[in-house]
Write a protein that binds this DNA or RNA. Structure first.
Lengths: 138, 138
DNA sequence: CATAAAGTCTATAATTTTTATAGGGTTTAT
DNA sequence: ATAAACCCTATAAAAATTATAGACTTTATG
C-alpha cells in the first residue's frame, strides 16, 4: 500500500492539475479540500517542488503550480520519491538496492529472480500511468 | 516493499519445496539456513499452516511440510496472507477494502480509477508467479 | 512410562517507520 | 510596515513491524 504521504501527493498533484488556469494554488486550499493537515501537506509539496514537479511563489499572493505536463508525471516517479522502492525486495530494487541479509547468494536465489521479473512488469504499469490518466478520470 | 514476514515466508516455502523428499523439516533448520529468528519464523509457519499451505507433525521427529503443489501457491496469496492488500490504496482493495478519508466521492475520483487499473494489472502478475517459478530459479 | 523433541498459542516488549506538529525563517505584494 | 505565504529543520506522537518469552500439548522412543 502507498503511504499517506504518497496518496496526499497524488491528491495535491491532481488538484494542481485541475486548477492550472488559476496560476497558483495555496497549500491551505488543497489541505482543506481533502481534510489533510496543512503542515503535513506542506512538507510533501516541498518535496515535490525540490524534485522538479512543482514551482512555487513566495509571499502574499503566492502558492504552488505544476511545472511539468501531467503526461510527464508517471506514478512510478511520485511513488519512488515519497515512498521509496517499487521493487518488492531491496535486493531487486533499481533505485534503492540493498542486499538481503538472509540470502547467501543472490545469483542463485529463485526469489531474487522472480522478484526481478515482478519488478520489471510492475514498472511497466507504473511508468505508463501518469497524472494525465488521473485527471482524465475526474 | 514486502515485509520481512512475507520475505521469510517465501524463503521458508522455498526451503520446504526443495526438501520435499525429506518428509518433514524443522523450523530450526529453516531459521538457521537463513539466519532468521527461530521464534519469529515459528509464527510465520503457523500462519502458513492455518492458511492451508503447510502441514505439520508435532512431537519428536515432527516438523513442517508443504501440502500444496508449488504451482498452486501464487505470490498473490502469500503476500495477501502476511502483508495484506496488494492494491496500492484501501479504496481499491478487493480483499481489504476501506474508504479513503480524504476522498469525498470515490465514484468521481481519478486516483481511484487509475489505482483500480493498477491493481488489476498487478494482480495478473502476482497471480501468475508461483512458488514453482521460484523453485525453478534455484 | 519418563523424557526429550517438536510444534501451538498468546501475550508483550523492542524497534522502526510513518504521521503529525511546532516554530522560527524568508520573501513579496500592497 | 505589515500580513500573507512558502521554507526549513527538528521533534513528538502514533502505528506498524519485528522480535522475544514462556507455558502448553503432542509424540517418538528407550
Amino acid at each position: 500500500m502507498l503511504s499517506k504521504k504518497t496518496k496526499y501527493a497524488l491528491h495535491a498533484l491532481t488538484y494542481l492539475g485541475k486548477h492550472k488556469a488559476e496560476g497558483t494554488v495555496l497549500i491551505h486550499d488543497i489541505a482543506e479540500e481533502h481534510g489533510i493537515s496543512h503542515k503535513f501537506l506542506e512538507n510533501i509539496l516541498l518535496e515535490l517542488r525540490k524534485a522538479g514537479y512543482l514551482g512555487s511563489k513566495k509571499g502574499k499572493g503566492g502558492g504552488y503550480y505544476l511545472i511539468k505536463e501531467p503526461k510527464d508525471i508517471p506514478l512510478s516517479r511520485v511513488i519512488r520519491l515519497l515512498d521509496g522502492p517499487i521493487a518488492l525486495l531491496p535486493c531487486v530494487s533499481l533505485n534503492y538496492y540493498e542486499p538481503c541479509a538472509e540470502c547467501k547468494n543472490e545469483a542463485i536465489c529463485g526469489i531474487n529472480k522472480v522478484m526481478a521479473q515482478v519488478r520489471d512488469e510492475t514498472l511497466k504499469i507504473l511508468e505508463n500511468k501518469t497524472l494525465q490518466d488521473i485527471l482524465e478520470g475526474e
